[in-house]
């Protein structure tokens, strides 16, 4: 009873704090799920990180990049970055495939396939604990603006925009589930609902299908624009890869 009263008193304060600085979806999870993410021996995402480490050695990434703990630290915190060849932003998965095709002469890995998710989680895992630091590159501004426009654009049969849930109603509940602010600070992540690993693009497709709109295809520039915007929105949040989400 006293606890409930305290929570009521604190609620507006928490809401104010949330508006001031981004809050990770981690904070809204059940204590059991949080414990699962915190403990590397219980976090199923670590299986993919392990797999990624093996792939890093096997597919010759280590030949140029050496020890990932040093060379890849911070990479996930700044991506998507501007890419000359694309004349636009490129995400981490896109960079891994670009590196394979152009420098290794190997075929690109299938988007959302297990090997790419594994490599992506291994690389992103090296930045765990670092704050999201989107680059101040002015060439990324158009993508950020496009991403923000998509974020605020109403979509689908339900005619909802991302912002209507994740800005206006974050912290409240949609049916039984808390609505997070929607920050991309733990991807690729292990989602209990998927019983597997997934990228930010898979999560975005989920939400798009949820409001009954047609999702873009994997790898579409729209997703990368949204990711560029979301990373600037999440600036300062600590990376959690591999995160666990319900």
């Amino acid at each position: 009873m006293r606890r409930a009263a305290l929570a009521l008193l604190l609620a507006p304060l928490i809401a104010l704090a949330a508006a001031a600085q981004p809050q990770s979806g981690f904070e809204l999870m059940a204590p059991e799920t949080q414990a699962m993410q915190r403990d590397d021996t219980a976090n199923p995402g670590m299986l993919w990180v392990q797999e990624g480490e093996a792939l890093w050695q096997q597919s010759g990434c280590a030949g140029c990049h050496g020890d990932a703990a040093a060379s890849m630290r911070g990479a996930a915190a700044r991506y998507p970055v501007y890419d000359e060849a694309r004349a636009g932003p490129i995400d981490l998965a896109g960079r891994i495939n670009q590196c394979r095709v152009e420098r290794q002469g190997a075929p690109a890995l299938a988007l959302e396939g297990e090997p790419l998710l594994a490599l992506g989680s291994f690389v992103a895992h090296q930045s765990r604990g670092l704050p999201v630091a989107p680059p101040a590159d002015p060439r990324l501004a158009p993508a950020r603006a496009q991403g923000e426009a998509l974020f605020r654009e109403r979509r689908g049969q339900l005619n909802l925009s991302c912002a209507q849930c994740h800005d206006d109603n974050a912290g409240r509940r949609l049916a039984g589930s808390p609505i997070p602010q929607g920050h991309p600070n733990g991807y690729p992540l292990y989602r209990l609902e998927w019983q597997g690993m997934g990228s930010l693009q898979r999560r975005l497709r989920n939400c798009m299908a949820g409001v009954r709109s047609e999702p873009f295809a994997y790898g579409a520039p729209e997703y990368i624009a949204i990711e560029t915007f979301l990373m600037s929105r999440a600036a300062g949040l600590l990376l959690e890869t591999p995160a666990v989400r319900p």
Partner: peptide
């Protein structure tokens, strides 16, 4: 892939927790 967690140096007579994930 598997993850197995054991305490590093348990004492004789101690009850240890073993966690496995596959």
């Amino acid at each position: 892939r598997t993850l197995i967690n054991l305490p590093r140096n348990p004492k004789r007579g101690e009850v240890i927790e073993i966690r496995t994930l596959i």
